[in-house]
Design a protein around this nucleic acid. Structure first.
Lengths: 249, 249
DNA sequence: CTCGCTTCTCGTACGATGTACGAGAATAGC
DNA sequence: GCTATTCTCGTACATCGTACGAGAAGCGAG
């Protein structure tokens, strides 16, 4: 075992070896026993990310939280990129999966999306971490498997169902990325949730007043309705699901 | 003018001031004249990102490309985050906007999505940079304005049209993030595009063989059809557009 | 028990990065 | 020319990921 030494000084090359990452980590049963574990390290990293943000997840910080030396982590994880990967799959384990679909695939898919949204609200760093993912871990695969089961009644073929899952997941991540960024802006600045919206609107209006953007100006003047994050999410989710299959049970 | 000194040692706070960012940069007309410009710096940064990847965009590298000292950049841009923001809007300027919509909003929206895809293929770092964006620049606003115009025949209200644009843009970014990651993996590893897919499939099959993931196993056995990135994109795009409005013009 | 093999531990060090600071250089208006 | 104003950029620092390798700690064999 021991460190792998990927030898990629800068840029982003291969980075993560799926086979080695998710294998059961067979016990060497000789030599000094490990004082920690991959799971323990992953949990610590997630805890830091949850409370202090993804940027606070440094190898030093994770090690410190475990009372270990920084370099000790590298006995368990070849690099930080891999740790990120482990973090993502760990929180994917929070996903509650019913034992079997109800048969109403639209509402089942809706429930999957809501579950994913809940996870991302619990772990606000997730949407930012997802684009860097290179491999699907066991927990993520379980969600995918369940989603495929849910889509059986759609009549879509295998390829289409895989693509649909990717579509749905992409939507949730995009939307949550926006929703959470909005909340961060609120928390960081003037505090009142209405004020931030006002500030953004004010900026947009100023830009709009500069002459162009006629349609934008008109749209801004006419915004209304339920703007709560939950409501927006649900509205858009319905559209995504509506577009999946033309007509079916 | 001069540097602002945001005083955010770690974490991600406010970071970018929209008002100051996109204002016309009125000339001070006194003192030593600037040797460069925001636009020149932005173009250099984009060129580096295009050829060497986003990670290669360092303040030192950008300055070096202009033959300037590193710290000179800070006369034009308060921090790297802002430079990123400028890069995003710069490439958004590549978006070709017809003078007016054809009236067929579905095909107009499809065209917008294709245009965005083309931009992201030209600037593969874009999807990765987008989530960090905090403000919409003039070029991005122009695209938004055009999209709103396109959606006039849908009968959707202002709020819904704004949300729809966000949905569409999010889809394109998600899908392209995946598509480009796939191509990077191909380029980095075994070279043949089929082999990478095989390797991924092999990993999935191995995971699947471990007992669970019955539906995934079945789906993997049945994949087929046109798997070209373009084809997948078009298929999913159709679903997104189909879901936007039930029935109309 | 002792030896030696194996494995984990972690102090030190290096090359990068973003950027604060402030002395100097260049220009415009008086 | 003088001076106020602005841009230039060398130096320095904190912080990051992680390579290296000496030491510590446990196992099986004798």
């Amino acid at each position: 075992m021991a460190r792998t030494g990927s030898a990629t000084p800068s840029g982003s090359r291969v980075g993560v070896d799926p086979e080695a990452l998710w294998s059961a980590a067979e016990r060497p049963r000789r030599g000094r026993p490990p004082a920690h574990s991959r799971a323990e390290i992953t949990t610590a990293a997630v805890a830091i990310a949850d409370t202090e943000g993804l940027a606070a997840v440094t190898m030093r910080a994770v090690a410190a939280r475990l009372g270990a030396g920084t370099m000790s982590l590298y006995s368990y994880v070849p690099n930080k990129e891999t740790l990120l990967e482990l973090m993502i799959d760990e929180v994917s384990g929070d996903h509650r999966l019913p034992t079997n679909p109800t048969g109403d695939w639209r509402s089942d898919l809706r429930q999957i999306a809501h579950e994913q949204r809940a996870i991302m609200r619990r772990h606000p760093w997730l949407p930012a971490a997802l684009p860097a993912r290179q491999t699907l871990g066991p927990n993520t695969l379980a969600v995918l498997d369940y989603a495929l089961a849910v889509m059986t009644p759609t009549g879509l073929d295998a390829q289409a169902r895989l693509e649909t899952f990717s579509l749905l997941t992409g939507f949730v991540a995009s939307q949550m990325s926006y929703e959470l960024a909005q909340e961060r802006a609120i928390e960081a600045a003037g505090r009142t949730p209405g004020e931030i919206l006002d500030a953004q609107t004010r900026y947009l209006r100023a830009a709009v007043a500069g002459g162009n953007y006629a349609h934008l100006a008109q749209a801004l003047a006419a915004t209304g309705g339920d703007q709560s994050a939950q409501a927006v999410f649900d509205r858009l989710l319905d559209r995504v699901i509506n577009g999946i299959a033309p007509e079916s049970g």
